[in-house]
Design a protein around this nucleic acid. Structure first.
Lengths: 204, 204, 204, 204
DNA sequence: CATGAATGAGCATTCATTCAT
DNA sequence: AATGAATGAATGCTCATTCAT
């Protein structure tokens, strides 16, 4: 059945990524087996290894796919938003309004799980730290600096640390929500966090 | 009349808990084997199972020990601190000045790891959620309410959510530090977080 | 009328055989995968299966090709050599002067490996035993008998056993060299083996 | 069932070694699975890993056990044999009279298989080469030198090469026998090899 | 013809837990 | 009480072979 179109392969790849997403989200990174993903995608173990060399690689691909998609959408949306404050608000809005639920909780958990997993493996950690610094932190840092330049934010705030702290807060609240579940007043937390952050960086 | 004294058992229990702490911190929850702990404590597998019925139970005991010790120490220290603001500051100071390092990173990671693990198991999650609500959150909630009562803090802040958010921030920053490692400006993050939180809850 | 000429097929077959030789020599019979050979020959798995029905068959074809070529060359060369002693010497000379090295070691190993492999499979073994008897042993047996007839060799030696023993010696020394590697005094061993054999069969 | 006697453990170890011997001999090194050995020994996979850390290690232990036993017996027997010639003859006699048969053939094959296997793995090869040089070769080298000293053998023969060649011959003939099987005139080959070797090293 | 996608049996190794001694 | 021997389910990954395109 060979010499299949690029488009076909892309479709299959997506199928695997989507299946992996479901499985990882449901059972976590460690507990998900390649067989689970094969079963879910109604393909086979070997099939998966045609696309990804290891479970780890599969997870990384999944993560990168999602991150890249997220940031692309983010930049697009931000292009139409005037001012740093507006952008920060939009960012919070996105998290606040996220389609939370079981699947979302699972995704946060597996994300954190892998993040921790990576801390214990040299190579992986380098990848994750780079992503953190150059994708997440710098993305926000630019916005903070924009705010400082425009006079929206206090001039003396340390953009790098603020940016980093922002993600720390997001991850902390998300993690708690992912474990506590529906009892966690997810929206309230994010609303207050937003006010808190904006008050802190804003001109007094 | 038991063959071994209660005191002996307590000592052994501590030994196991301490050993488990070292092992978990170093290799993580999943990667640590009962054999590791037996070897570290120079006892045996069977011995460990005399004190704890499973790896999971051992971890929980360890966590409870540490939490209870932490909160006891905390309450003690707080008894001498006037005012809610001072208490919050002290709390931040404790985190900020924590003897960070490899072991500390390992502890945070295993803590988060288990926290995530628990989310996937009904019974465990109930335990963890209770701990979260009645130990962590309520502890802080009382302080916030003290601050509101004394007029240090804005009267309209939602003590429950603020308390919860506080721990979310702590965990978020800690988690990031535990993965990023020494490149992470740990103290800076906590200093800014403190300012941010206090600014937010304080009287304008 | 076939789409591709016989000559084309023959060329491709040679390509595959040559590629297989390289791969087997480098990694051994078991460790070499069909994919390796496809990659080396810049063809494809399916292509290879068009020419050979299995990895085993491919190896056999390779072996036969090489043996037949070897013996053809040998007979040619021997046609010009007077006397059995000269022929034996020439045979030793060939082994002694062989372009030894990593590749040569690899070839010997895979040869032995397959030889052993064949011993465990009825059909294969029959093939290998026939080859042994009718190609290798008989080839030398004729020379020994020539030597007996001409009076160069002792009349009472058992040509069959001597011939067989000769190959045993060659294989034994080769195998040792293939494992020991460059520390093995390859030439010395073959020189002494030659003296020993000739002394043994020669007239006293 | 713990704290079992050393003797018990030794017995179990022997059981595993014996079982491994049977399985390896029958199916070869690669084809034998740990499950095969567990089934044969009526124990379990985990049990085997209590005694040996890997299939490779198990094989090596087996090999060392056998070698050490062989050489011990050999040295014992040789203590009572006057003269180098007598010792060489005894060595040949032992091989010649070995209880050949299917099992013996299997053992030779797996021995050669592993020998070749080792050539492809740095660490393993070092072990095997050492064994070759310091156990096998040197053992015989001493005998040859004894023969030279006593005047039984020609003074100019190179003891090291002769010793090495001797084992090459033994292995070559054994290998051939192990593949050819009962059609191979095993005893005849060894008889002639003996005559050949003794004629070569002996005084003219 | 040629390709390479798809399959899935196969295997070494790990480890929490049990329980005989 | 304490030990550690014994178990066996579980899992990531490989690869010869097939066959649809």
């Amino acid at each position: 059945m060979p010499k299949v179109s690029e488009e076909y392969k892309e479709r299959k790849r997506e199928l695997l990524l989507e299946s992996a997403l479901q499985c990882f989200s449901e059972k976590g990174y460690y507990a998900t087996t390649i067989d689970d993903i094969a079963a879910y995608s109604k393909t086979s173990k070997g099939f998966i290894y045609n696309y990804f060399n290891s479970k780890e690689e599969l997870y990384i691909a999944l993560m990168e796919e999602r991150t890249s998609r997220t940031f692309t959408a983010l930049r697009e949306r931000f292009a139409t938003i005037e001012g740093a404050t507006g952008k920060i608000k939009e960012l919070f809005r996105m998290y606040r309004e996220a389609k939370v639920g079981l699947q979302w909780q699972g995704l946060i958990r597996v994300h954190m799980e892998f993040w921790i997993h990576s801390a214990r493996h040299e190579n992986l950690r380098d990848i994750m730290v780079s992503r953190y610094k150059y994708q997440y932190r710098d993305f926000l840092k630019e916005i903070i600096e924009e705010g400082k330049a425009s006079g929206e934010f206090e001039a003396h705030v340390d953009a790098t640390v603020i940016a980093s702290m922002f993600w720390g807060i997001i991850d902390g609240l998300s993690l708690h929500y992912s474990v506590i579940g529906d009892e966690y007043e997810y929206r309230s937390h994010f609303i207050q966090a937003e006010q808190m952050v904006l008050l802190y960086v804003g001109k007094k």
